[in-house]
């Protein structure tokens, strides 16, 4: 009954449906549905990737600028010289040799190492193109280089700004993080953390690849259009709870129920429901009905 000439429209419709599924299905990272119920300590102590040599020389103890969290990384003096070389090569043409800013880019003095770490480690700096919002891209520097640049900028205005936090999520409270996230973050980043476009070319980025350190740095420094949350708004404990929730639930959601369709809600669902659901059933009509 299923003659050859109907195979072509059938195959076309099917391929459109499959394309839709692929386009809206989650990436491999999301599809990994192993759901940590409490945050694994392996990621909890993130800020020191093992491949970097300066780990041994830095001593992660609480340091000068207080008021930004429980524990911060102390960047050693030895970082400043190589950091300055990197800064001169990649940053100084816009931010000025002393990080004091030019007509093209703002003054970085006093922003602190944590702010620099966020912008550089997420690849937003150095800027590829001047636009409404700096684009996220693979970072050009490894962890130790990033911290060296941060140490140099910090050395221009010692004792001010946000240091690089030490993140330990082992004691964090996921449930509290969830409510805080819904209240403070979901209005822009969406409740699934997928991110979305805001007005005027700005957008709230997806949180699916952010590290706990970057999350805390972003909350405390308020990059771009994002509001800055001081300790009066969110205590260090609360910030850690949010980071734990983003890392444990947003980035590793319990994605039962099949393909996630991109986590963008009814737009993808309607697309699949109409094309695959109604489409398949129309093909069935076409199959069992007469066509002349």
């Amino acid at each position: 009954m299923f003659r050859g000439r109907y195979a072509i429209p059938a195959a076309l419709l099917a391929s459109v449906g499959i394309f839709g599924l692929m386009a809206f299905s989650p990436s491999a990272a999301q599809a990994d549905s192993t759901t940590p119920t409490t945050v694994a300590s392996a990621d909890g102590g993130y800020p020191y990737p093992t491949q970097t040599s300066p780990t041994s020389t830095t001593s992660p103890t609480s340091s000068a600028p207080s008021g930004y969290g429980t524990a911060n990384i102390t960047l050693p003096e030895s970082f400043i010289a190589p950091g300055q070389a990197l800064f001169d090569a990649s940053c100084a043409s816009c931010h000025g040799a002393d990080a004091a800013g030019t007509s093209r880019a703002p003054n970085l003095q006093g922003l602190g190492a944590g702010t620099v770490d966020f912008w550089v480690s997420t690849g937003r700096m150095p800027l590829a193109i001047s636009s409404v919002q700096a684009a996220q891209k693979p970072s050009r520097f490894n962890r130790s280089q990033t911290l060296q640049i941060a140490a140099f900028v910090q050395s221009r205005a010692p004792g001010t700004g946000m240091p690089v936090p030490i993140v330990n999520l082992s004691a964090a409270n996921l449930e509290a993080g969830g409510s805080l996230f819904t209240l403070n973050c979901a209005a822009c980043h969406t409740i699934t953390g997928a991110g979305d476009a805001l007005a005027g070319g700005a957008s709230a980025p997806s949180l699916h690849l952010a590290t706990p350190t970057q999350i805390i740095e972003a909350i405390r420094s308020g990059p771009g259009n994002m509001p800055r949350f001081s300790e009066g708004n969110l205590t260090p404990t609360e910030v850690h709870d949010i980071a734990a929730y983003v890392h444990g639930v947003i980035q590793h959601p319990d994605d039962r129920g099949g393909f996630g369709l991109g986590g963008i809600g009814p737009v993808g669902e309607g697309f699949v429901g109409l094309l695959v659901g109604v489409g398949l059933l129309m093909l069935v009509c076409f199959w069992i009905g007469e066509r002349t």
Partner: peptide
């Protein structure tokens, strides 16, 4: 195909909102 994963959204509170 997953549809409407409500557990990821959390319960509704009139003072809360999600974008998108």
């Amino acid at each position: 195909a997953q549809i409407n994963p409500i557990w990821q959204f959390g319960q509704y509170e009139p003072f809360q909102i999600s974008y998108a």
